[in-house]
Amino acid sequence: MTAAEMKRAEQALIDSGISVEELMRRAGQGVAQMIWRIAADMPTVVLCGPGNNGGDGYVIAQWLLEKGVDVSVAAPLEPATEAARHARSLWQGKAVSLHDAQPAAQFVDCLFGTGLTRAVGEDWFADFTRLYAGAKRRVAIDLPSGVESDHGTLLNDVPAFDTTIALGACKPSHYLEPARSKMGDLVSIDIGISADSNLEILPKPRISGPTSRDHKYSRGLVAVVAGAMTGAAQLTAMAAQKAGAGYVKILRPPAFHRRIPVSWSRPCRTWRICS
């Protein structure tokens, strides 16, 4: 789901009578249970931002604390939302400023999640990086801080996490590069969201080698539309031919000049350049 779709889905739950605090409890406790299954009692520092993602962090920290984990909370600011303030009031462990926080074996990133549209400030991100570097395991909640939700864009120089735990539904950036390479293992926590999205994840294509009965048409036709600068079209055509297409066609402007190495001509594969 996109950030806007996720916001609408959460609001629909709230309109049905489920409080923001209850959604936060579901998210935080679901994540904490997943972290417990992955890392058990590994000493942990949870980085909590001022929004609801940070509120999830306080719930995570409290659940782990009750399990006997050596856990602390680092926060750059006090919570800014009512639900996050409620979660902060239930936290019974240590809380320190982000600048004073010390690394632990496990780093849980709850600084920012879905909806981030600008880079994390340099001061905060420097301490974020310090806590990240001092950990053996790194877990991002919803999205790594510094990742834009919908397009796979990195707003900061985001390091790679071991695990990313999506809340309610996966977001486009969980699958789009360059963000996808920063996620590590991707898992999702159900918080009761009813997914209503126009997005679809396409399955990976299954490409088989040609048989003795195959010919150029059974292996697929690729049409490449060339612009005024023709290099990209030629590279694309060669890549399609290399990948196994049986017939590659370039639709060209009048000034197009073919510069295809002879070695690219293969049995059962045909070039055609059309004006």
Rank of each mutant, 00 (worst) to 15 (best):
N53L: 12
G121R: 01
E21Y: 01
L176C: 08
G152T: 05
R26S: 04
Y58S: 04
H151R: 13
M42E: 15
Q62I: 12
I165G: 11
L47T: 02
M34Y: 13
G51F: 13
G227H: 03
L23E: 04
A32R: 09
N156W: 11
T163K: 04
W36Y: 15
Y175R: 13
N198R: 13
V71H: 08
V96Q: 10
H215L: 00
Q33I: 12
L47K: 09
P261I: 05
E66M: 15
H174I: 06
M42D: 13
R85M: 11
G220N: 05
V120A: 00
A160K: 07
G168V: 06
P172T: 02
G55H: 04
P144V: 07
C274E: 15
G168N: 06
G246I: 08
F112T: 05
A223Q: 10
R8L: 11
A4R: 10
S263I: 11
T44N: 12
L23P: 04
V73H: 01
G231W: 11
I193M: 02
A166C: 09
W264C: 13
D214H: 12
M42V: 15
A223K: 09
G115T: 08
Q234K: 12
E177S: 10
G168R: 01
A40E: 14
R118M: 07
R206I: 14
L154A: 10
W91P: 02
S173I: 03
A4F: 08
F161T: 08
G209F: 15
G121V: 01
Y58I: 06
E122F: 05
E148R: 08
T236P: 00
T129H: 02
W36H: 15
C110P: 05
D190E: 09
D109E: 06
F107S: 03
V96M: 12
L77V: 02
Q241G: 14
A195L: 14
Q106C: 15
V96F: 09
F107L: 01
T236Q: 04
E122K: 09
P267C: 10
Y58Q: 06
Q102M: 06
S145H: 07
W264Y: 15
P210Y: 14
R272A: 12
A240M: 02
A12K: 10
I18E: 12
M6G: 13
D15M: 10
M24D: 08
V73F: 05
W124S: 09
L221R: 06
A226I: 05
T164M: 00
T270V: 13
H174E: 06
K67H: 15
K204D: 08
G134N: 00
S263N: 07
D100L: 10
D109F: 00
P203H: 08
I60M: 05
T81Y: 03
P254H: 07
I18R: 07
A9W: 01
L199G: 11
S265P: 04
V46L: 06
M229S: 13
T211H: 11
A228H: 14
I207Q: 11
L143A: 09
A4T: 11
V139W: 15
Y132H: 05
Q33Y: 14
N53F: 09
A133K: 02
S275Y: 10
F128A: 05
G134R: 00
S194D: 10
V73S: 00
A245C: 05
I250M: 05
G30V: 08
N53M: 12
K67R: 15
